[in-house]
Design a protein around this nucleic acid. Structure first.
Length: 357
DNA sequence: TTAGGGTTAG
């Protein structure tokens, strides 16, 4: 009997995991009933009602399974509840996640971490910190590295450097396992809060560095205008035989752009194509920025025209500002026309156009 | 069984 119960629990958790892998429900269009409610009304909606809403939004597949989970009576099981909480978190429906969290009678460290992570994910940093304090008061088990990563991320979002320093000291004091994820979160937090040297110190002390850790350091060096250090870090990454990915290359191209290194940027672009990394709109954006900063406007324009994917408004704006800076009014008009056609309701674009004229 | 880190451009 106990074994059967455990099997059923596993099945429920597996269903929740499956639901989490399903695409997040879109709640943004006007004709969807829950979105039409105000925030207070939405917070008071029941899970069953939300389940019906999912049915409306997504068709019957995932929602009927969700309803089945809830109706089965397993909704009060800790693992099922935590999975459901995580499901809402991934849908960025934190109010509904909180509702589930509050219903958990014996919250363990995983449930607390999941809820803190949910707040952190949507930028509700005060709530994330408040819950972390509540967690400490509730005297659950000591927080693990995973918990700390969520709280550190909240610091990164809010730029709360002092609190971040306190968390760093807390991790050391409590001897929380400082694994690659925790260290990367700290590197990112210090850099985003303006302390690039401290970020570098933590990065260098990491015994194991994976692709995300290397990418984070490269991107942060680039953002801080340390182009040489970013490219040197990329070389070290290659020497360490860690495979770069699309984010790594964004950092490399950004470093070249900020450092005025147009020819190096072209070289890395070619290397990226040869290595099989598919350039995304972000990579194209970096290249346009790179060429524009080097005042190579014609080349940038030709590059945009030859893109196999549609340029986004930000790319056209980058070009437009550069046309203005270089007094290329004819070209600026063509670019402005393309931008306004693409994004006619953004007032900022009209301001840029007035300045051109 | 359930929780975590990196993503550009005026």
């Amino acid at each position: 009997m106990v074994q059967q119960f455990a099997i059923l629990q596993n099945q429920m958790s597996a269903i929740m995991a499956m639901l989490q892998r399903a695409p997040a429900p879109s709640l943004s269009t006007e004709d969807q009933p829950v979105e039409a409610l105000n925030k207070r009304q939405r917070n008071s909606i029941t899970i069953e009602e939300y389940s019906s809403h999912l049915d409306y939004v997504q068709g019957s597949n995932s929602s009927s399974r969700l309803r089945h989970v809830i109706a089965s009576g397993f909704g009060s099981n800790l693992f099922v509840q935590t999975s459901l909480l995580n499901f809402y978190k991934k849908c960025e429906e934190v109010a509904l996640g909180r509702k589930v969290f509050d219903e958990i009678t014996e919250k363990n460290v995983v449930a607390w971490s999941a809820m803190i992570g949910g707040y952190s994910r949507v930028g509700m940093v005060n709530e994330a910190f408040r819950l972390f304090r509540d967690m400490q008061r509730a005297k659950v088990e000591e927080p693990y590295g995973m918990t700390m990563v969520s709280v550190i991320s909240a610091c990164t979002v809010s730029g709360a450097l002092d609190l971040g320093k306190w968390l760093h000291a807390y991790i050391d004091k409590k001897a929380i396992k400082n694994d690659v994820e925790v260290s990367t979160a700290l590197v990112n937090k210090y850099a985003k809060c303006g302390c690039i040297e401290k970020a570098k110190e933590i990065f260098e002390a990491m015994p194991v560095k994976d692709t995300k850790a290397w990418s984070s350091m490269i991107v942060e060096f680039a953002i801080h205008g340390h182009a040489e250090e970013a490219l040197e870090t990329f070389s070290r990454m290659e020497e360490a035989k860690i495979e770069p990915n699309n984010v790594t290359l964004i950092g490399v191209l950004l470093a070249c752009a900020h450092g005025g290194l147009a020819s190096e940027g072209r070289k890395y672009w070619s290397c990226m194509l040869e290595s099989g990394i598919e350039p995304s709109i972000e990579h194209y954006g970096c290249m346009v920025d790179l060429l524009c900063r080097a005042n190579l406007i014609e080349e940038a324009y030709g590059f945009v025209e030859s893109m196999p994917i549609d340029p986004n408004p930000a790319i056209w704006r980058t070009l437009l500002v550069s046309c203005k800076k270089n007094k290329m009014l004819d070209k600026g008009e063509i670019v402005a026309e393309r931008l306004l056609k693409l994004e006619p309701l953004n007032a900022e674009n009209y301001m840029l156009q007035v300045r051109i004229g």
